Amino acid sequence: MSRATSDPAPSDPAPSAASADLVRELRSFSGEIERYIAQMSHVHTMHRTDLTALALVMDHGGASPGEISQGLGLSPSATSAMLDRLESAGHVRRARVESDRRSVRVEVTDSARAVGGSMFGILARHMRAVLDDHDEADLVAMASLMEQINGAARAARDEAGRAAEDRGGN
């Protein structure tokens, strides 16, 4: 890895201690969420990617197979195989879009909602216990900060993808 892609430029100011602490805590949070999802995938005997796909479809109120492929970084054939698994398990249904009968929309079923409730209910309960200690103004500010941080993560992912393309990668 070159210095240009691994370290800030020498002219970049050093991050504040609080900023560095927050970035470290966000990395730790990401790891904890990854481990939680891995644990829940074992509990529900589902592929981790299947759980991620269900969350994506739930969050968007339905999605096309192409949107799922793009959202998860899967090939169309891998997405199709995953949707076959989820459909066989009764977690999703594929429905033709009325305005364009060639298009398909993936929707979650009550079974998937039950899995989601079971999976994220535990996490939500523990997070609510922490969030309940903060007033509405704090929560609004934190939600805004997280929205900005997620945007920064997407921008970093896009930049990394362009760098990989520039090097002849995927």
Rank of each mutant, 00 (worst) to 15 (best):
A114H: 05
P8Q: 09
F29L: 12
S75F: 01
Q39I: 02
D84R: 15
S16W: 05
A114K: 09
S77L: 01
I37P: 06
D138H: 15
A89E: 13
I37T: 11
S69P: 04
A156I: 09
A9Q: 10
M58C: 03
L26S: 07
A4W: 07
F120H: 02
E147S: 12
R154N: 06
E165W: 07
D59L: 14
Q70A: 11
A153K: 08
I68D: 00
S99G: 00
D133M: 12
S19E: 13
G90S: 10
P15V: 07
R27T: 07
M119W: 03
S16Y: 08
G71C: 09
M46Y: 04
A141K: 14
S99K: 07
M142E: 05
G61S: 04
E25R: 12
T79V: 10
S69I: 02
G116I: 01
L145W: 05
S80H: 11
V115S: 04
S111K: 14
T5A: 04
S16K: 09
M119I: 06
A14C: 09
V130N: 06
G61D: 12
R128H: 10
A95L: 15
R94G: 14
R48T: 09
E67P: 00
V108F: 06
V106T: 09
S6A: 07
E136M: 10
D100S: 12
L123S: 04
M1D: 02
G169V: 00
L54G: 00
G168V: 06
V104C: 04
F120E: 03
V23E: 08
I149W: 07
R27S: 12
R162D: 11
V106A: 06
H126I: 00
M46Q: 13
S2E: 12
V130C: 04
V130Y: 07
N170Y: 08
L26G: 03
Q70N: 08
T52Y: 09
R101A: 15
L26H: 01
H47A: 13
A124G: 03
D21Y: 10
F29E: 00
G61V: 02
I37Y: 07
I68M: 07
R35T: 09
L83G: 05
R93Y: 01
S144Q: 00
D12S: 14
V23R: 14
I149G: 00
G169T: 00
S19I: 10
E25N: 08
A63H: 04
R128Q: 01
S103Q: 15
H126F: 06
V23S: 11
E87G: 15
R162F: 12
V57D: 01
R3K: 09
G66N: 08
V115M: 03
H47Q: 15
A38S: 14
E32K: 11
E67I: 02
R102M: 13
D138A: 09
S11T: 06
V140D: 10
A152S: 08
A112P: 13
A163Y: 05
H47R: 15
G168A: 06
A124Q: 11
H126N: 09
M146Q: 12
A160G: 02
I149V: 15
A156D: 03
S30N: 06
L26D: 00
V92K: 03
A14G: 02
D21R: 14
A18E: 06
L74S: 04
S41M: 01
S75R: 11
A55K: 08
